[in-house]
Design a protein around this nucleic acid. Sequence first.
DNA 1: AATCTGGGCTAAAACGTTTTAGTTCTTTTC
DNA 2: GAAAAGAACTAAAACGTTTTAGCCCAGATT
Lengths: 342, 342
Amino acid sequence: MKKVSISDIARKAGVSVSTVSFVMNDKAVKMRISREVIEKVENVAREMGYRPNQLARGLRTGKTKTIGLIVENISNAFFATLAKSIEDEAKKYDYKVVYCSTDNDEEKARDLINMLSQRQVDGYIITPTLNLGEDIRRLQAENKPVVLIDRYFPQHDEIPAVLVDNYEGVSRGMDYLLGKGYRKIALVTIETEMAHMKDRLRAYNDALIRHGITADDRLVRIVPYNSDHEAALTEVVKLLSSAGTDVDAVFFLTNYLGVLGIEAIKKLHIKIPGQLAVLCFDDNDIFRLYTPTISVIRQPIEAIGQKAMFTLVERLRHTGEDVNHSNAPIRLTADLVKRESV
Amino acid sequence: MKKVSISDIARKAGVSVSTVSFVMNDKAVKMRISREVIEKVENVAREMGYRPNQLARGLRTGKTKTIGLIVENISNAFFATLAKSIEDEAKKYDYKVVYCSTDNDEEKARDLINMLSQRQVDGYIITPTLNLGEDIRRLQAENKPVVLIDRYFPQHDEIPAVLVDNYEGVSRGMDYLLGKGYRKIALVTIETEMAHMKDRLRAYNDALIRHGITADDRLVRIVPYNSDHEAALTEVVKLLSSAGTDVDAVFFLTNYLGVLGIEAIKKLHIKIPGQLAVLCFDDNDIFRLYTPTISVIRQPIEAIGQKAMFTLVERLRHTGEDVNHSNAPIRLTADLVKRESV
DNA sequence: AATCTGGGCTAAAACGTTTTAGTTCTTTTC
DNA sequence: GAAAAGAACTAAAACGTTTTAGCCCAGATT
């Protein structure tokens, strides 16, 4: 059984292909097709189970009503939630989302952009990796709008971005810890040149300065991006082994690192918050359920997704036109969720 | 800047469109295109940054090299991992995956199938909802292969399926609990008519019978599918409030229910495994990190993804041909992971 | 000298839509 | 009663590919 095309319907209904097309696209009235013909066509189409071929449609119109979403890793809770929120939001604007993971690999990201570009998506929402600026500029040059999420390129201010205010979030966390009297605050972050992580790190250092504390290199662990689980765990265990004496609090700068930290803390049988206060940037089910519950700086994931989609749709609407959109990164504020670990 | 098409290249290289197409598809040798022309075309294509338009290609060839993956909810750990594994596997066969979530809603699932069908995906991997059999038959009638995962339709044995051996998995878990001496084993499951959950429930009851224990209705909680988090939590809290006396163990039949259970247990300050032994079907990061760690029946997620993809590709290769594939559901065995909670 | 062979290409149709510019009637207008 | 206007449609081009059938020429064969 082959698929029914518009011309199958035309034949069966005894009208032309164009007429069928008009009826199917609600242009029948504008094109002055008579009541009877409209009904006739609609009936035949329904009977035959017609579904427009989107490839053909996209080829002809140049619009696929599809947007490409590139995240770091779809199986990570943060990105999975973000993806879901973007998908739901997209549906409101009648767009479909296709998503893929870069695993933070520059080359893979490039391949994905190519792949999506070949499939003619109308626009992109991208969690960029390093050095992706040029590739993204190319998309823009082809009139395909792009919105960055979670990260941004300070040097490319012509690419709009929606992200959490990382500096403010970490500052807020640090003020909380410092306000509670902790002074030997360890930091666990991930190795990367990307601006969003640099902002977080800067906020940590600035907070220490603000409170007149000299930073201690030995309290900062930068885990290499591609280190395996075991190696990373060992690093964190080493850092936290002096909990209670040289370290009285720890701030994990990502969700994943926090989970890793929990594992280390569990292994070391450290008492929280007695020996060690724990704070993590970005929430996770585990933090809510662990005993004790872990305080976090919570990113407004839904809002990021919605705002990103909104920004994209705005540009999608005016493709080609030379509208003056403001491209300053949109920064949403993160909340401090106080739980038992501090 | 517009996208470059094959005819832009043809013009610039001073050859015909067909020649360019042959070169781009490695058919140049077969078509006896000369060395020089091949090189010329390749150079021009590279310079101009040509990327074939997959819509046009798909329209012409009828193949999009894309498969549709429909899961219940992509932000659930189980499905996220499954999706990742299928995506990775698909890449090996040079297929791209587009995925979407049904939220277990029959109508939404139908919409998604339509949407994917309109986008002309070559094949489907589907976590079906109830009553989707007919829609799937229609896909098959259009020569689009379908493989079910995680669930299946016993009454539709012409639709291949890859899933865990649910009956065996739960039996194994029950034997473990019963072997440890637990007798008042509560069960928390989800309300559904789908066969995979019925199999799990049946395994529970059969195990009790096998051990000469009379089933007690009050020990079984069937939470309605669309109950909100709070309502479901209350249900489980009620069930477990008599832990230590009327209940000595609890078996959660899904990942999500297990997490919910942890929340309830935390709320009730129940001692595990002292007052209550806990076992869950399907693993989750939380179970590994919770104190105490929670024992689980672990599904071989990667293997399910790989096997499903393999099965699909096999059929994709022989579309149209009337090959005699065996369509008995492929059942993979689940492992018992012993942790501290039993 | 006519025919055949093969090498090296190209023309054109086709895939399923959308959309512009008609065409053919019928009715209105002056 | 001729021209204009309108109503109800249709023909055909275009989107960017792939692929079949064929063209043209050079050299080989009869």
